[in-house]
Design a protein around this nucleic acid. Structure first.
Lengths: 156, 156
DNA sequence: CTTAGTGCAAAGCGTTTGCATGCGA
DNA sequence: TCGCATGCAAACGCTTTGCACTAAG
């Protein structure tokens, strides 16, 4: 599926979601959804807001938070929060299994994605007695290459 | 090792940590460390503060946050943050490999620990090209049994 | 004696909320 | 028309910070 086709089908799925929930199909909601569906990387609420403003579209924070919450419930977006940083959001295809995990540097806070199909598969097959799993997130904490280099330098 | 012995050795290790860093060995730091080392469950800054106050020991929030940060850097404590909740902290034995992961209910926010030695072992053996891993956290998001029951009821 | 560490209160900052207005159904 | 959704600004709650004071080394 091309990016464009996937985006269109996501837009339709979001419309469906709004209908099922009996929510209104407002232009703000679609503008935000479109922007988010076009995001490649993780984003912050503020960066999303600025990005939309650059496109000449102003939305209030209230509506942004509200709509992101809907996108999470619809399964298009996941929320991450590392240490004291503001929340980061990540666009995902609905029903899609997690296909990567995150390396988080404890020194500088940088987050990197790594793919590991085998590991992911093993994790997604896990079942629990009474808990119904939907998806998972794996964070590996440690030191990134840049900070390792810095440490070596300062330690002699 | 008994709990008490482990606590003593942790106290010593914390003292060592302070010395290595050239930090002062204040009574507040030891009081907080002792309390944290005795914690069984996850705790919040406020619950820690209240717990200490019940013991007749008052510490300022500034010192609490400061000392918890030190305990994290020393490897005795890990920080978790779920959705909009205040940060939760978890006591860990230093150098100890993670021995459980977390099931997080998307409906009610409840967090449950599960042990899975095999999975944990596989995860802790993972290596990366340039990233130096120290520990990891695995969160499985889904619906807990209580919320499943509630959903069934309301859906007929 | 020096200065890191503490307590307190105020400030910060991401996020949520209350309320008046606007607009989808 | 009806009431959900929006925008704005104020409120919130956790966390950090500035400052004067205390005490570790």
């Amino acid at each position: 599926m091309t990016d464009q086709k996937q985006k269109n089908s996501s837009r339709e799925a979001f419309t469906q979601f709004l209908i099922e929930r009996g929510l209104r199909k407002t232009p703000e909601r679609f503008a935000i959804a479109d922007k988010v569906l076009g995001m490649k990387d993780h984003f912050y609420v503020e960066s999303l807001r600025e990005s939309m403003e650059r496109d000449g579209y102003r939305v209030s924070r209230a509506t942004l938070y509200n709509t992101i919450q809907l996108l999470i419930e619809a399964g298009f977006v996941r929320r991450h929060q590392f240490d004291g940083q503001p929340a980061q959001y990540e666009r995902v295809s609905p029903k899609e299994v997690t296909n990567h995990h995150h390396l988080v540097c404890r020194k500088c806070g940088k987050v990197k994605e790594v793919k590991d199909a085998e590991l992911i598969k093993a994790l997604s097959l896990k079942r629990y007695r009474t808990f119904q799993p939907e998806f998972f997130t794996l964070y590996v904490y440690g030191t990134c290459s840049t900070c390792q280099r810095k440490l070596k330098k300062s330690n002699g």
